[in-house]
Design a protein around this nucleic acid. Sequence first.
DNA 1: AGCCTATTTAACTAATAAGCTAAATAGATT
DNA 2: AATCTATTTAGCTTATTAGTTAAATAGGCT
Lengths: 107, 107
Amino acid sequence: MDKIFSALASTPRRRILAYLSATSLTAGEISDRFEMSKPSLSKHLSILENAGLIMREKKGQFVHYSLKPDKLTNTLHGFAQSVCPAGAPLVKESKEIAKQRDLPTSR
Amino acid sequence: MDKIFSALASTPRRRILAYLSATSLTAGEISDRFEMSKPSLSKHLSILENAGLIMREKKGQFVHYSLKPDKLTNTLHGFAQSVCPAGAPLVKESKEIAKQRDLPTSR
DNA sequence: AGCCTATTTAACTAATAAGCTAAATAGATT
DNA sequence: AATCTATTTAGCTTATTAGTTAAATAGGCT
């Protein structure tokens, strides 16, 4: 979860995802669309891959990158649901009442 | 956008949002639920507030924090839509074809 | 083999982020 | 006024991140 949101917390990486949402591209084609050096782009790509948001497929000397679309939508939608469950009323709660609930703590 | 995803790229901050999804809480009540020092928690809260995900309301000596629920769901859903538009087919695309499209570059 | 293109890894620098303790601010209480 | 509680700000340390250039790896071409 941390890996996914960290991966998304970067404008160039979100732009990469946007490019890949239209089509799959090679590392070089992606790099062509940015000012950054190729090694920097490569690092961004590996962060996205490590987060499970994209996949790589080597074909000859080229590496083709493409989106793993379900991963992204499932994660975001699932998280939004878990934090803002539809119809959950927002109620004030005192410290005492909170103690009766079994929200996890880090202790 | 960067601010929102950066704010979400942190387990303690996502946990804070989860607590606040059930109810609004004071800074101290939130702090009680973590091992961290109060200053650290305070910083997390200000990052979340700065991202527009939560709001603070001072009442006497206490500061009450609560979720801005629309902000989170709208952002995540909107982003998921933009990157994975429903029904968009994933097609291979060569460099030449890509140039005809007007995807923005950083140049 | 030798070279050219595509991509990644290594090594480094500079900026950012997370945590801490100690001190400052602000409101409530005696 | 003095003090207590709640919360944030300041200043510091350490770890992580984004970018760089230079070198390594791997595949294709002559």
